[in-house]
Amino acid sequence: MDVELKSLTGNGTWSVVSLPKDKKPVGCKWVYKIKRNPDGTVERFKARLVAKGFTQQEGVDFIDTFSPVAKLVTVKLLLALAATQKWSLTQMDVTNAFLHGDLEEEIYMSLPPGYTDTSSGSLPPRPVSSNDTAAEEALKILLRSHFKIKDLGPLKFFLGLEIARSSQGISVSQRKYCLELISDTGLIGSKPVTVPLDPNVSSHKETGPTLVDLTPYRALVGPHMKAAQRVVRYLKSNPGQGLFYSVNSDMQLKAFGDADWAQCPETRRSVSGFCVFLGSSLISWKAKKQHTVSRSSTEAEYRALANTTCCAPDKGGEKDCGADFSKGHDRFKSSERCLLLDGDDVAYTEWF
């Protein structure tokens, strides 16, 4: 708590003043968290001072909120590029990063509990990629001149992803998260399964017992409690399994899309699915029920193709990463009728 208060005071986060008669202060409280290493050992105990923003009214106390975040597909694309381009990956943490934004509104907050005259919150440590050691050091010096920076060394753990590197490439897994999930669901002693879902079992809203406590189900965010538990048992079979980004992968972007027409027996809505590769490196995937009912398999396939195209990295992302997808982009569909409907001149290939 002392470190948090000292950090907030050092950044000039607030000024201690008397409360005007026509103003109401926003409360605050301490939030405590244990920061752990990838192996589960305790790294440090952290205290964060947070304002009780739920007491504010939208349109009165604030207009909108915005916080830039990185999508995981962007992180995986960066890792795939780092493997093929042989970039070094260094992790850096900006202390109190969120406090470097500009606050335009005038906000009054109650004094923190235990405050005598002297907080941290930081964004997740940001990876820096480069194969130019001199440029990397110059960037670190530039960042240190503006922010309080902690150099965490080679990238190993980022946003829940465990990252290991060898001469063959970069491997990414979530072993720590999987083990915690198995423990939290009470399935440590369960028998592992080899596939996440049983294709011969169909789940409906009426199947299964009524749950008295909905907390475990909501924590799993599964379509059906029994099906969600099976996924956890599948993770138990190999919690360290993950992705591998080879140094020998090419720079061709390939996207595969498909649809299961009227797959949902209750709503008759179709399910779209896609996966996107950079060479042999899988960087994005999703399977999701479509928003509307498709009256034909061709319509369902066409919606799946549109979803695939929207979620694939574009030319702008290519330039931001400093990459050159010189071999172009390929999209793959299994429906010949869907291919005929599309008038794009991009190369399509039918696959089965």
Rank of each mutant, 00 (worst) to 15 (best):
N248Y: 03
L19Q: 12
Y108V: 11
V16F: 10
V128Q: 13
A228Q: 06
H291F: 11
D314L: 09
D345R: 15
K86E: 14
N37I: 06
S335T: 08
A255G: 15
E4Y: 06
A134N: 14
P199S: 06
G257F: 02
R144G: 12
G59T: 07
L103W: 10
K236L: 00
T207F: 07
F158V: 07
M225L: 15
V346L: 08
Q263G: 15
G59R: 08
V26P: 01
L143C: 10
R295W: 05
V17A: 09
D2K: 14
R48K: 14
S297M: 13
P25W: 09
D260V: 13
H146G: 05
L152M: 15
A51G: 13
K226A: 15
L123Y: 08
S203Q: 05
M109T: 11
S294C: 14
I141K: 15
A312G: 03
E105F: 05
K33Y: 10
A300L: 11
A80S: 12
M225C: 08
T41Q: 09
G322A: 09
G101H: 04
F54R: 01
S249G: 07
I188L: 13
I34P: 04
G114E: 07
L159D: 03
L339F: 11
H146N: 14
F62E: 04
E162V: 00
S67C: 06
R268T: 05
L81A: 02
V31H: 01
V346H: 13
N131M: 04
N131E: 05
L282F: 03
D345V: 10
R175K: 12
F274S: 01
D344N: 14
L243W: 02
F98Q: 06
S88R: 03
L340Q: 15
K71F: 08
R230E: 04
V231F: 03
V271I: 15
R233Y: 01
T74D: 13
K176M: 11
S326M: 09
E162H: 02
D342M: 13
T41Y: 04
V75A: 00
D213W: 11
T349E: 10
A135I: 06
C310P: 00
K319I: 12
D151Q: 09
G222K: 10
Q252S: 01
V17W: 10
L340S: 08
S297T: 12
S145T: 09
K71P: 07
P196W: 01
P25I: 08
L220T: 04
K52T: 12
L253G: 03
A262G: 09
S284F: 01
C28K: 10
L72Q: 13
E106Y: 05
L77R: 04
T74F: 12
G53V: 06
L161E: 00
R36S: 07
F147C: 06
D61Q: 11
S270H: 03
A135D: 09
I283S: 01
T210L: 11
W14K: 08
D2R: 14
Y217S: 11
I163S: 00
D198R: 03
W87D: 00
T309K: 06
S67H: 02
Q241G: 07
L79D: 00
S294F: 07
G12K: 05
L5K: 02
F274K: 03
K150N: 11
R48Q: 13
C275A: 11
K23N: 09
S110Q: 13
Q85C: 01
W87A: 01
G242W: 03
A347M: 04
N200A: 11
C264P: 02
F45V: 07
W261P: 03
E299R: 05
M251A: 05
K52G: 05
